[in-house]
Design a protein around this nucleic acid. Structure first.
Length: 612
DNA sequence: GCCGTTTTCGGCCCGACTGTTTTCAGTCG
């Protein structure tokens, strides 16, 4: 059985159909609609194969109409889509890769194919080497050279950059430009500001008294390898590391409009502009303008914008609340009358997944607690690896018992922060845990995580995770899929089933904030939030600097619309304790006795005496 | 192909930059 889910496979087929349609010159709106279906399928956490007999529910999904629903059902029943086969028969298979070369769009690829005999990347290279390409129309010296460099770049560069790699780089560039005396405002935008798990290129926005000087400061930065474009308002460079950085220079009065435009997502912007048109406006990167039926750009005719300086102003004029960047993906955010109060970095009050030198961490218990205290946390959980994680020096039951004693001793003499004795317990391939229940019951907190058998079939992975989540002594499901961004696929469970089990058993699902993981991923968080599940945001710290990863976990959480109310790390120590103890039978009976009533799972009966 | 408190038909976002052009097509975001 294939590891890939029906959703992912279908998304691939629709993406390919859209690409071929571009090459055959299909109606662009039809192409856009097909691309949207692909994107919708990618984001969907619901497994479409469960809807094979319910086409009406398919059509109810925004972006999927009658036609696509039929094709999806066709695929689910027969394993193929006839239209996909027909379309792909129209062009050489390798031509789709040529479409992926930066600078080459459908028109040029079509020309290269029909007039230049190019059918794939290899024949494109041959055409470049033999010089036949220069005989084609609109193929001047520069264009040919650019294609050559793009191919060269493609062969050397890897995939998109990870969030945690791009962020420090962007902050460095922002600092560099801020230091330039004539720059008024500068900020990063794009997918970085939206907190996507990977970043294609870094977008920087600036206003300056002398734009040309600012542009010069940008293109002459130390590690610029090639200036890709350099205009009045827009410049692009490629750094030696291979990252592309775009700078957009704008008037300070229009900074908000530009920030909105440059932050995206493209889909959010398109939806916003469509809304603007319906309300009698025109929206571009210079502002929101009254629509006067003149097709030329309003700002070039001296038309005054009704809003431009701040993003908030533009949203307000359109009748919308300001939308946090992480939500701007055209996934329903524009239909909201009120934006939920998303979790913020400052809301996080504890770390519930961290390692010490007992397993593979670099800090002692004291050092770990000191760092957590320095960060203003009320609680730190010591959760070293369990015995099966041999490569991480996982603890045998005997060593864990000693470790618990040691943690208790350190906790007793440490003031100002609660130190919990915990474990990150391996979830075996069958869903059983790496320690016996009597040992697990001695721990204050149990994080159960998959570490091995990460290529098992989706159905088995689902059963495995559901079993772990339902285990009465487990508090948190750690990095649920085990994926590593750009490196390892990880498990493909039916996440809706795992989430449903988590809700039923009051177990939290972790967003592992390490930028290599970010697991749960954003749309899984969204499904968890929609289902009412508890979510934890942990850094999985192995050293002090790992605590800095928290921001990436929070951004991922915000992309999934998580609020502080559903995030266990944002709770007061009292409420956290009650939840932890609700999964400790002996302790719970004490709690019940003390409270003189029933301590209902997951609820905080004494929310009033919150933070202390 | 999708969608609808203006519409079930007729719309569907907007501008900058490049390169090859004599006024614009193609690509990108």
């Amino acid at each position: 059985m294939c590891i890939m889910s029906s959703n992912a496979e279908l998304a691939r087929l629709f993406t390919e159909m859209a690409a071929v349609m571009e090459l055959t010159g299909e109606n662009p709106f039809r192409i856009r609609a097909t691309e949207k279906v692909a994107r919708t399928l990618e984001d969907l956490t619901l497994d479409v194969s469960t809807l094979v007999d319910e086409p009406k529910r398919l059509v109810a999904i925004e972006g999927i109409g009658e036609g696509s629903a039929q094709r999806i059902v066709e695929f689910l029943r027969t394993g193929r889509i006839a239209e996909h086969d027909e379309l792909l028969a129209k062009v050489p298979k390798g031509l789709l890769a040529v479409l992926g070369v930066p600078g080459l769009g459908p028109k040029t690829v079509k020309l290269l194919w029909e007039k230049g005999g190019v059918t794939d990347l290899a024949s494109l290279k041959e055409a470049l080497d033999s010089g036949t390409i220069e005989k084609l129309p609109r193929m001047g010296e520069k264009t040919v050279q650019n294609i050559r460099e793009s191919l060269d770049f493609m062969s050397k560069s890897s995939s998109r950059m990870r969030l945690g790699e791009a962020m420090p780089l962007a902050e460095e560039i922002v600092a560099h430009l801020s230091a330039s005396a004539n720059v008024e405002r500068v900020d990063f935008a794009g997918s970085l500001r939206r907190g996507r798990e990977t970043i294609g290129d870094i977008d920087i926005l600036a206003s300056a008294k002398r734009p040309s000087a600012a542009s010069k400061a940008f293109t002459s930065m130390g590690d610029v390898q090639k200036v890709l474009a350099s205009g009045e308002t827009k410049s692009s460079v490629r750094l030696k590391s291979g990252v592309q950085v775009d700078l957009r220079l704008v008037d300070d009065e229009a900074f908000g409009a530009a920030l909105l435009y440059f932050t995206g997502s493209k889909e959010h912007n398109v939806a916003l502009r469509e809304l603007a048109v319906r309300k009698g406006y025109r929206l571009n990167e210079y502002g929101l303008f009254p629509d006067d039926d003149d097709p030329s750009p309003p700002q070039s005719r001296g038309v005054r914008p009704v809003a431009a300086a701040k993003e908030e102003d533009i949203y307000r004029k359109l009748g919308l609340p300001w939308c946090p960047p992480e939500m701007r993906e055209d996934r329903g955010e524009l239909a909201l009358k009120k934006i939920p109060k998303l979790i913020e970095l400052d809301d996080i009050k504890c770390e519930l997944h961290a390692h010490t030198t007992a397993s593979d961490g670099r800090l002692s218990i004291e050092e770990l607690a000191a760092e957590a205290k320095r960060r203003g946390f009320h609680t730190i959980a010591v959760t070293d690896h369990s015995r099966s994680s041999v490569q991480a020096n996982g603890l045998s039951p005997e060593r864990l018992r000693e470790h618990i004693e040691e943690i208790r001793r350190v906790a007793a003499r440490t003031k100002g922060i609660a130190i919990l004795a915990g474990s990150e317990v391996d979830i075996h391939a069958d869903g059983s845990l790496d320690y016996d229940d009597d040992l697990l019951a001695e721990l204050d907190i149990v994080v159960a995580s998959p570490h091995a058998s990460l290529r098992q079939e989706p159905a088995k992975a689902t059963d495995r995770l559901v079993r772990a989540v339902k285990h009465p002594l487990v508090h948190i499901l750690g990095h649920p899929t085990g994926r590593l961004i750009n490196a390892r696929e990880g498990l493909h469970p039916d996440m809706d089933k795992v989430i449903a089990a988590a809700v039923a058993s009051n177990t939290a699902l972790e967003i592992n904030a390490n930028y290599l993981r970010l697991d749960l991923r954003d749309h899984h968080v969204r499904s968890a939030v929609d289902a009412g599940a508890l979510v934890a945001i942990n850094t999985d710290a192995h050293s002090t600097d790992h605590f800095d990863f928290l921001r990436y976990g929070v951004m991922t959480a915000r992309r999934g619309w998580l609020t502080g109310e559903r995030c266990v790390n944002a709770w007061s120590s009292t409420r956290l304790r009650e939840w932890l103890e609700s999964k400790r039978p002996s302790a719970r009976s004490r709690t019940v006795a003390a409270a003189g009533g029933s301590a209902k799972k997951g609820r905080s009966p004494r929310k009033a005496r919150a933070d202390r």
